[in-house]
Computed example of a mutant assay.
Amino acid sequence: MTDNSPRLTGVSPVLEVPFDPAGRVDVDSFHRVVAHVLGTGVDSVMFPGYASEFHKLTDDERVDLRDVLLATTSAHGVPAIISVPDHATVVAVRRAVDAAHAGAAAINLLPPHLLGPAPDAVRAHIGAVADAVAPLPVVLQVAPAQTGTSLDPAVVAALARRHPNLRYVKVEAVPPGPFITALGATDPALPAFVGYAGLHLPDALRRGAAGVQPGCSFTELYVAIWRHWHGGAVDEALALHTRMLPYVSYWMQGVELIVAAEKLISARRGLIDHPTCRDPARRLDAEEVTTVDRFLAEFADLLPPVR
């Protein structure tokens, strides 16, 4: 297996999966989401993550949507990071190898967490998947709030020494900053992507984060912040993030909450036809719907309707 992957950096949204009101996958809307996100100037995309409701997709749906994505990203020359969140090691290895052969630029690996596997079993799982796709890059996702899995920077660095294609870490520790700093001081130093909707993005940028992985319904705001910051307009980057913060901090009180909010944003903008989340799902109340509309009004200059 060869590795022709570019260095991963910058804004890398996690793509949502549109559903119709009956809960069926809306492939036409997914095409529209992919095309729009690629047109915003992102550096890569990731699928399927929590924002994709990966845990609510069938095996066939995951593969079919992955292949739609890879066909489009290949034509646009944008790297696609394919996530492997499967709990069983044998399944995760098969998924990762299949994604690599299908054309993934990298594998995002969510460590197993159901029923509290032992730390040595978690490390063995990570190593098995990394070795199976070597030399293709692996992004290790550290999301203790969602998974309960604890991997400190020293453990991650030790894994990277044993499995050199483990090259990146998606940090969703709260706060992520100290973790990012520690990764930069390990041997080898490991570039970090900050997740958690970019809630802590300014601190992550100060600490040298390689990128950010938010959702995809208002990608343009993250691209603007990234470009302001790296173009030397730090005050503009901070001002834009500060304007976003009241909204993002509320939505990030729960994964299902921000997924529902982002789906409604996407539907309001015309990215998807319906804001449906598959059950069981979080329902926005009237005030939360009003907040979404207030958000879109405030950022109308940067988030125009798509159609």
Results as ranks from 00 to 15, higher is better:
P304C: 02
A88H: 13
R62D: 01
A88K: 13
V169W: 09
V78T: 15
H76A: 14
Q213P: 00
M1P: 05
V122I: 15
S12T: 13
H113Q: 03
D64A: 14
L183H: 09
S249H: 14
L257P: 02
L69R: 13
L15Y: 03
T186A: 10
A80N: 12
A106C: 06
D293N: 11
R269C: 03
V68R: 12
A102R: 15
R278Y: 01
A102N: 08
S52Y: 13
I82T: 11
L159R: 14
R62A: 01
G231E: 10
A71S: 11
A157K: 13
I107R: 11
A35F: 05
I180R: 08
G198H: 07
V97L: 05
F295M: 12
I180W: 06
G254K: 13
R243F: 03
V45H: 02
V84E: 01
D28A: 15
G127F: 00
H76T: 01
V292R: 11
A173D: 15
L296S: 10
A96C: 04
A51S: 11
H200C: 09
V45T: 01
Q146F: 06
Y196E: 06
P176E: 09
L109Y: 09
A132I: 03
G208Y: 11
P79R: 13
A160T: 08
A160L: 05
H55Q: 04
P6Y: 08
Y222A: 03
V248S: 13
V27K: 07
G254S: 14
T2Y: 00
A261G: 12
D235G: 01
A210C: 08
S29P: 05
D152Q: 10
R268T: 14
L8Q: 14
T9M: 03
T291R: 15
A182C: 07
V142N: 06
P112C: 08
V169K: 12
L166E: 06
V156C: 10
G184A: 09
V223T: 14
L109N: 07
V248N: 11
D43V: 00
L38A: 02
T72K: 13
